[in-house]
Write a protein that binds this DNA or RNA. Structure first.
Ligand code: MN
Ligand code: MN
Ligand code: ZN
Ligand code: ZN
Lengths: 141, 141
DNA sequence: TCTCAAAATGCAATATAATTGCATTTACAA
DNA sequence: TTGTAAATGCAATTATATTGCATTTTGAGA
Protein backbone atom coordinates (compact mmCIF):
# COMPACT_ATOMS: atom_id res chain seq x y z
CA UNK A 1 0.00 0.00 0.00
CA UNK A 2 1.58 3.30 -1.06
CA UNK A 3 1.99 6.14 1.41
CA UNK A 4 0.11 9.35 0.89
CA UNK A 5 2.74 12.06 0.37
CA UNK A 6 0.24 14.90 0.28
CA UNK A 7 0.39 15.74 3.94
CA UNK A 8 -2.01 18.69 3.80
CA UNK A 9 -4.63 16.44 2.31
CA UNK A 10 -3.86 13.72 4.82
CA UNK A 11 -4.45 16.17 7.68
CA UNK A 12 -7.65 17.48 6.12
CA UNK A 13 -8.97 13.98 5.66
CA UNK A 14 -8.50 13.41 9.36
CA UNK A 15 -10.16 16.65 10.48
CA UNK A 16 -6.84 18.01 11.72
CA UNK A 17 -5.62 21.54 11.15
CA UNK A 18 -2.59 22.02 8.96
CA UNK A 19 0.22 23.35 11.13
CA UNK A 20 3.97 23.54 10.73
CA UNK A 21 4.76 21.24 13.65
CA UNK A 22 2.48 18.57 12.21
CA UNK A 23 3.93 18.87 8.74
CA UNK A 24 7.47 18.67 10.12
CA UNK A 25 6.66 15.51 12.02
CA UNK A 26 5.01 13.86 9.04
CA UNK A 27 7.81 14.80 6.66
CA UNK A 28 10.46 13.54 9.01
CA UNK A 29 8.82 10.20 9.66
CA UNK A 30 7.73 9.54 6.09
CA UNK A 31 11.24 10.12 4.76
CA UNK A 32 12.75 7.30 6.78
CA UNK A 33 13.00 3.78 5.53
CA UNK A 34 12.80 2.56 9.13
CA UNK A 35 10.51 3.65 11.95
CA UNK A 36 11.70 6.75 13.79
CA UNK A 37 12.39 6.65 17.50
CA UNK A 38 11.03 9.24 19.90
CA UNK A 39 14.56 10.32 20.96
CA UNK A 40 15.48 10.82 17.31
CA UNK A 41 12.34 12.86 16.67
CA UNK A 42 13.13 15.07 19.63
CA UNK A 43 16.69 15.50 18.54
CA UNK A 44 15.93 16.39 14.93
CA UNK A 45 12.93 18.59 15.61
CA UNK A 46 14.74 20.19 18.51
CA UNK A 47 13.99 23.90 18.36
CA UNK A 48 11.36 23.57 15.69
CA UNK A 49 8.74 21.78 17.78
CA UNK A 50 8.21 21.85 21.52
CA UNK A 51 8.65 18.49 23.25
CA UNK A 52 5.13 18.50 24.67
CA UNK A 53 3.66 19.44 21.31
CA UNK A 54 5.54 16.54 19.79
CA UNK A 55 4.04 14.13 22.32
CA UNK A 56 0.59 15.48 21.56
CA UNK A 57 1.02 15.32 17.81
CA UNK A 58 2.20 11.72 17.97
CA UNK A 59 -0.71 10.74 20.18
CA UNK A 60 -3.23 12.40 17.86
CA UNK A 61 -1.68 10.83 14.77
CA UNK A 62 -1.75 7.44 16.40
CA UNK A 63 -5.41 7.80 17.36
CA UNK A 64 -6.31 8.87 13.85
CA UNK A 65 -4.55 5.91 12.27
CA UNK A 66 -1.94 8.08 10.58
CA UNK A 67 1.02 6.68 12.48
CA UNK A 68 1.54 3.50 14.36
CA UNK A 69 3.57 3.27 17.49
CA UNK A 70 6.02 0.43 18.00
CA UNK A 71 7.48 -0.17 21.43
CA UNK A 72 10.77 -1.91 20.74
CA UNK A 73 12.37 -4.53 22.94
CA UNK A 74 14.12 -1.85 25.01
CA UNK A 75 10.84 -0.07 25.68
CA UNK A 76 11.62 2.84 23.35
CA UNK A 77 8.75 4.25 21.30
CA UNK A 78 9.14 4.25 17.52
CA UNK A 79 6.77 5.67 14.92
CA UNK A 80 6.02 4.73 11.35
CA UNK A 81 3.46 5.87 8.80
CA UNK A 82 0.52 3.54 8.60
CA UNK A 83 -0.46 2.04 5.31
CA UNK A 84 -3.15 4.17 3.74
CA UNK A 85 -6.01 1.91 4.73
CA UNK A 86 -5.58 2.52 8.45
CA UNK A 87 -8.25 4.71 10.00
CA UNK A 88 -9.09 5.90 13.50
CA UNK A 89 -11.42 2.95 13.90
CA UNK A 90 -9.55 0.31 12.04
CA UNK A 91 -5.83 0.03 12.50
CA UNK A 92 -4.37 -2.76 10.47
CA UNK A 93 -0.71 -3.22 11.21
CA UNK A 94 -0.56 -6.91 10.71
CA UNK A 95 3.09 -7.03 9.84
CA UNK A 96 6.09 -7.78 11.98
CA UNK A 97 8.95 -5.58 13.11
CA UNK A 98 12.64 -6.13 12.78
CA UNK A 99 14.90 -4.62 15.45
CA UNK A 100 18.51 -4.29 14.34
CA UNK A 101 20.73 -4.92 17.33
CA UNK A 102 23.55 -2.98 15.69
CA UNK A 103 21.98 0.31 14.49
CA UNK A 104 18.83 -0.04 16.64
CA UNK A 105 16.57 0.78 13.74
CA UNK A 106 13.08 -0.70 13.65
CA UNK A 107 11.87 -1.89 10.26
CA UNK A 108 8.25 -2.57 9.38
CA UNK A 109 8.13 -5.77 7.38
CA UNK A 110 4.96 -5.01 5.49
CA UNK A 111 5.24 -7.80 2.98
CA UNK A 112 5.54 -10.69 5.35
CA UNK A 113 2.51 -12.33 6.78
CA UNK A 114 2.10 -13.39 10.34
CA UNK A 115 1.48 -17.03 11.10
CA UNK A 116 -1.65 -18.29 12.79
CA UNK A 117 -1.05 -19.28 16.41
CA UNK A 118 -3.14 -21.70 18.41
CA UNK A 119 -4.32 -20.22 21.71
CA UNK A 120 -4.72 -22.07 25.01
CA UNK A 121 -8.31 -22.66 26.19
CA UNK A 122 -9.96 -19.56 27.65
CA UNK A 123 -7.63 -17.10 25.99
CA UNK A 124 -8.96 -15.08 23.08
CA UNK A 125 -6.51 -13.26 20.85
CA UNK A 126 -7.19 -9.85 19.37
CA UNK A 127 -3.90 -8.62 17.98
CA UNK A 128 -0.55 -10.15 17.40
CA UNK A 129 2.81 -8.48 17.54
CA UNK A 130 5.96 -10.13 16.35
CA UNK A 131 9.38 -8.58 16.84
CA UNK A 132 12.51 -10.11 15.44
CA UNK A 133 15.95 -9.07 16.62
CA UNK A 134 18.98 -9.44 14.41
CA UNK A 135 21.15 -7.58 11.94
CA UNK A 136 19.59 -5.50 9.20
CA UNK A 137 20.59 -5.47 5.54
CA UNK A 138 22.68 -2.31 5.91
CA UNK A 139 24.60 -3.49 8.94
CA UNK A 140 25.26 -6.78 7.14
CA UNK A 141 27.03 -4.59 4.46
CA UNK B 1 10.08 -27.35 33.14
CA UNK B 2 9.39 -27.08 36.86
CA UNK B 3 10.46 -24.03 38.83
CA UNK B 4 12.98 -24.39 41.59
CA UNK B 5 11.21 -23.39 44.81
CA UNK B 6 14.31 -23.64 46.95
CA UNK B 7 15.35 -20.04 46.66
CA UNK B 8 18.39 -20.28 48.95
CA UNK B 9 19.77 -23.03 46.78
CA UNK B 10 18.93 -21.10 43.65
CA UNK B 11 20.90 -18.11 44.93
CA UNK B 12 23.83 -20.29 45.97
CA UNK B 13 23.93 -21.95 42.59
CA UNK B 14 24.30 -18.55 41.03
CA UNK B 15 27.03 -17.31 43.35
CA UNK B 16 24.69 -14.79 44.91
CA UNK B 17 24.42 -14.09 48.61
CA UNK B 18 21.20 -14.98 50.35
CA UNK B 19 19.54 -11.78 51.50
CA UNK B 20 16.03 -10.87 52.55
CA UNK B 21 15.41 -8.48 49.68
CA UNK B 22 16.38 -11.15 47.17
CA UNK B 23 14.21 -13.78 48.81
CA UNK B 24 11.26 -11.40 48.92
CA UNK B 25 11.59 -10.64 45.24
CA UNK B 26 11.86 -14.30 44.30
CA UNK B 27 8.95 -15.34 46.45
CA UNK B 28 6.74 -12.60 45.11
CA UNK B 29 7.48 -13.31 41.47
CA UNK B 30 7.39 -17.11 41.74
CA UNK B 31 3.97 -17.04 43.40
CA UNK B 32 2.30 -15.33 40.48
CA UNK B 33 0.78 -17.25 37.65
CA UNK B 34 1.51 -14.29 35.36
CA UNK B 35 4.64 -12.16 35.02
CA UNK B 36 4.89 -9.38 37.59
CA UNK B 37 5.17 -5.77 36.51
CA UNK B 38 7.78 -3.43 37.91
CA UNK B 39 5.12 -1.06 39.32
CA UNK B 40 3.47 -3.99 41.09
CA UNK B 41 6.79 -5.14 42.53
CA UNK B 42 7.47 -1.66 43.84
CA UNK B 43 4.01 -1.39 45.29
CA UNK B 44 4.04 -4.74 47.08
CA UNK B 45 7.64 -4.60 48.29
CA UNK B 46 7.15 -0.97 49.27
CA UNK B 47 8.89 -0.50 52.58
CA UNK B 48 10.53 -3.89 52.57
CA UNK B 49 12.97 -3.25 49.74
CA UNK B 50 14.46 0.01 48.56
CA UNK B 51 13.54 0.98 45.01
CA UNK B 52 17.15 1.12 43.87
CA UNK B 53 17.90 -2.23 45.46
CA UNK B 54 14.93 -3.68 43.61
CA UNK B 55 16.27 -2.40 40.29
CA UNK B 56 19.65 -3.91 41.06
CA UNK B 57 18.22 -7.25 42.15
CA UNK B 58 16.14 -7.52 39.00
CA UNK B 59 19.12 -6.68 36.81
CA UNK B 60 21.32 -9.24 38.56
CA UNK B 61 18.66 -11.95 38.35
CA UNK B 62 18.17 -11.23 34.68
CA UNK B 63 21.90 -11.47 33.99
CA UNK B 64 22.13 -14.75 35.86
CA UNK B 65 19.26 -16.28 33.95
CA UNK B 66 17.02 -16.47 37.00
CA UNK B 67 14.39 -14.08 35.72
CA UNK B 68 13.49 -12.90 32.32
CA UNK B 69 12.33 -9.40 31.56
CA UNK B 70 9.39 -8.79 29.27
CA UNK B 71 8.72 -5.30 27.96
CA UNK B 72 5.01 -5.32 27.26
CA UNK B 73 3.26 -3.41 24.51
CA UNK B 74 2.94 -0.35 26.72
CA UNK B 75 6.67 -0.32 27.44
CA UNK B 76 6.24 -1.55 31.03
CA UNK B 77 8.80 -4.01 32.36
CA UNK B 78 7.49 -7.36 33.60
CA UNK B 79 9.43 -10.18 35.23
CA UNK B 80 8.93 -13.92 35.28
CA UNK B 81 10.95 -16.85 36.57
CA UNK B 82 12.96 -18.53 33.85
CA UNK B 83 12.58 -22.19 33.23
CA UNK B 84 15.25 -24.03 35.14
CA UNK B 85 17.49 -24.60 32.17
CA UNK B 86 18.23 -20.90 31.71
CA UNK B 87 21.74 -19.86 32.75
CA UNK B 88 23.76 -16.66 32.64
CA UNK B 89 25.17 -17.68 29.31
CA UNK B 90 22.23 -19.37 27.77
CA UNK B 91 18.83 -17.78 28.12
CA UNK B 92 16.16 -19.79 26.41
CA UNK B 93 12.86 -18.00 26.48
CA UNK B 94 11.53 -19.27 23.24
CA UNK B 95 7.91 -18.93 24.16
CA UNK B 96 5.44 -16.18 23.45
CA UNK B 97 3.70 -13.73 25.76
CA UNK B 98 0.04 -13.00 26.15
CA UNK B 99 -0.94 -9.49 27.23
CA UNK B 100 -4.47 -9.28 28.65
CA UNK B 101 -5.96 -5.96 27.62
CA UNK B 102 -8.39 -6.11 30.53
CA UNK B 103 -6.26 -6.94 33.59
CA UNK B 104 -2.93 -6.05 31.93
CA UNK B 105 -1.31 -9.24 33.09
CA UNK B 106 1.44 -10.78 31.01
CA UNK B 107 1.39 -14.56 30.68
CA UNK B 108 4.31 -16.69 29.55
CA UNK B 109 3.01 -19.29 27.16
CA UNK B 110 5.71 -21.85 27.77
CA UNK B 111 4.06 -24.73 26.02
CA UNK B 112 3.52 -23.13 22.67
CA UNK B 113 6.20 -23.11 20.07
CA UNK B 114 7.12 -20.20 17.93
CA UNK B 115 6.72 -20.49 14.19
CA UNK B 116 9.60 -20.21 11.75
CA UNK B 117 9.53 -16.96 9.82
CA UNK B 118 11.17 -16.33 6.46
CA UNK B 119 13.42 -13.28 6.50
CA UNK B 120 13.90 -10.79 3.68
CA UNK B 121 17.28 -10.90 1.88
CA UNK B 122 20.09 -9.29 3.86
CA UNK B 123 18.36 -9.55 7.22
CA UNK B 124 19.61 -12.16 9.65
CA UNK B 125 17.43 -13.06 12.62
CA UNK B 126 18.80 -13.85 16.06
CA UNK B 127 15.84 -13.84 18.43
CA UNK B 128 12.14 -13.76 18.01
CA UNK B 129 9.57 -12.22 20.29
CA UNK B 130 5.88 -12.74 19.87
CA UNK B 131 3.30 -10.87 21.92
CA UNK B 132 -0.39 -11.54 21.62
CA UNK B 133 -2.96 -9.13 22.97
CA UNK B 134 -6.40 -10.29 23.96
CA UNK B 135 -8.46 -11.41 26.93
CA UNK B 136 -7.08 -13.92 29.38
CA UNK B 137 -8.88 -16.95 30.76
CA UNK B 138 -9.77 -15.19 34.01
CA UNK B 139 -11.15 -12.09 32.38
CA UNK B 140 -13.20 -14.31 30.07
CA UNK B 141 -14.81 -15.70 33.29
C1' DT C 1 33.20 -19.59 66.40
C1' DC C 2 35.36 -15.36 64.91
C1' DT C 3 37.25 -12.27 61.52
C1' DC C 4 37.07 -9.31 57.73
C1' DA C 5 36.92 -8.33 52.71
C1' DA C 6 33.79 -8.41 49.17
C1' DA C 7 29.16 -7.97 48.23
C1' DA C 8 24.84 -5.98 48.93
C1' DT C 9 21.96 -2.43 50.62
C1' DG C 10 19.89 2.27 51.45
C1' DC C 11 19.78 7.01 50.83
C1' DA C 12 20.57 11.27 48.20
C1' DA C 13 21.25 13.22 43.99
C1' DT C 14 20.75 13.18 39.15
C1' DA C 15 19.04 11.83 34.62
C1' DT C 16 15.50 10.64 31.39
C1' DA C 17 10.63 10.03 29.90
C1' DA C 18 5.87 11.45 30.01
C1' DT C 19 1.87 14.17 31.60
C1' DT C 20 -0.95 18.16 33.18
C1' DG C 21 -2.56 23.02 33.57
C1' DC C 22 -2.94 27.23 31.65
C1' DA C 23 -2.10 31.45 28.98
C1' DT C 24 -1.28 32.68 24.23
C1' DT C 25 -1.41 32.04 19.41
C1' DT C 26 -3.22 30.19 15.16
C1' DA C 27 -6.19 27.99 11.61
C1' DC C 28 -10.05 28.21 9.11
C1' DA C 29 -15.36 28.05 8.83
C1' DA C 30 -18.71 31.16 8.38
C1' DT D 1 -12.75 39.87 7.95
C1' DT D 2 -13.94 37.96 12.25
C1' DG D 3 -14.79 34.69 16.20
C1' DT D 4 -13.98 30.55 18.10
C1' DA D 5 -12.31 26.04 18.65
C1' DA D 6 -8.05 23.92 18.09
C1' DA D 7 -3.29 23.84 18.62
C1' DT D 8 0.89 25.39 20.59
C1' DG D 9 4.54 26.63 24.10
C1' DC D 10 6.14 27.14 28.60
C1' DA D 11 6.29 25.87 33.54
C1' DA D 12 5.39 22.62 36.83
C1' DT D 13 4.67 17.93 38.09
C1' DT D 14 4.85 12.94 37.95
C1' DA D 15 6.90 8.64 36.68
C1' DT D 16 10.84 5.81 35.53
C1' DA D 17 15.72 4.74 35.80
C1' DT D 18 20.64 5.40 36.98
C1' DT D 19 24.85 6.81 39.63
C1' DG D 20 27.88 7.70 43.70
C1' DC D 21 28.94 6.81 48.13
C1' DA D 22 28.66 5.63 53.08
C1' DT D 23 27.03 1.83 55.87
C1' DT D 24 25.67 -2.81 56.75
C1' DT D 25 25.72 -7.66 55.94
C1' DT D 26 27.06 -12.17 54.20
C1' DG D 27 29.69 -16.19 54.33
C1' DA D 28 34.39 -18.25 53.18
C1' DG D 29 38.34 -19.15 55.49
C1' DA D 30 41.23 -18.85 59.70
MN1 MN E 1 5.05 -1.28 11.59
MN1 MN F 1 8.22 -15.37 29.38
ZN1 ZN G 1 21.17 -2.11 11.38
ZN1 ZN H 1 -6.96 -10.62 32.15
Amino acid sequence: MAINRNFELLLHDNQLKVTNPRLSVLKLIADQEAATSQPMLEKVLGKEVDRVTLYRILKTFEEKGILHKIIDLNGTANYAICSSDCTAHNHRDEHFHFNCSNCHKVYCMDDFHLPAIAMPPGFTAATLSLAITGICNHCNQ
